[in-house]
Amino acid sequence: MELFLARLFDGISSGATYAAIAVALVLIYKATTLINFAQGELAMLGTFVTYVIAVEQGLPVVVSLVLAMVATAVLAAVTERALIRPFDPSNHLPLVIITLGLFLLINALAGMIWGYDPRRFPGIFPADDLYTFGIARLRWYTVGTLVTVVVLLLLLSLLLRKTKIGLAFRAVSSNLESAGLVGVRAGPTLQFGWALAAAVGTLAGVLFVSDPVRQLDPNFAQRVLIFASAAAVLGGLDSLWGALAGGLALGLVESIVVGYVEWIPSQFGLATAVFVLIAVLIIRPEGLFGSKRVERV
């Protein structure tokens, strides 16, 4: 029972971070029906920026995080304007290629600047336990991550429902051409979506490496991206709360299924994520909470 609780807590905390990156993917997908393959790397970059501001400049971690979120949001807005907007959104191939190029470029750039030695990240939550049940420790980190992601989702829902830019965003994501006809400027709205996604991604990256058992290196986001995209697809790629459900489900699958099922070795966490991804896409392509897409022939 205690082992089960320990695995449950592990699953929740990593699931919440997958959910946070999945939210970033959902934001971009909602706006442009594009999966941003560079999302994980953008989050990694934001995490490194946070690290540099916090450790090398000595600012408080939370302040550094906010600064890094602003910085990556600006970077993403510029990227969207320069590299994404020139292309026809309905033609996927060039957009996939551009985001893959960004993936390679950002990953290599981080490797060139910061090297591959793992670094200890100053956590944003207290390192001790909130409560212990024998060997099962409910850590501040677990609770903090979950609460942060839920608050983030509440704020995002409010933003999308109550503000003008949120309304424009929903209009564009529902129908690009009709939104244009009623005077919504699609370009800046999508740019806003990219900036928002990058800021959310940075937060997610920082949450992920805030776990005292994890360390920061330029490759941490590759694995996270696969989990996050599986989570996003499981939840339904255009559903924000679905991303949370999907993320938690994936985190629990990783820690509980891989932990208990004997014949799945522990290195296969990633493989189970890919398996979930394939299974969802075959059985229920719209995910748990996504809206069904009807194709016109």
Binding site: N107, G111, M112
Partner: peptide, 20 residues
């Protein structure tokens, strides 16, 4: 020290975007 890093991946990434 930048030049000792993964400059190859960096250039290939740039090449991919620029050529597109």
């Amino acid at each position: 020290r930048f030049l000792r890093g993964p400059t190859g991946s960096f250039f290939l990434g740039v090449l991919l975007i620029v050529l597109t």
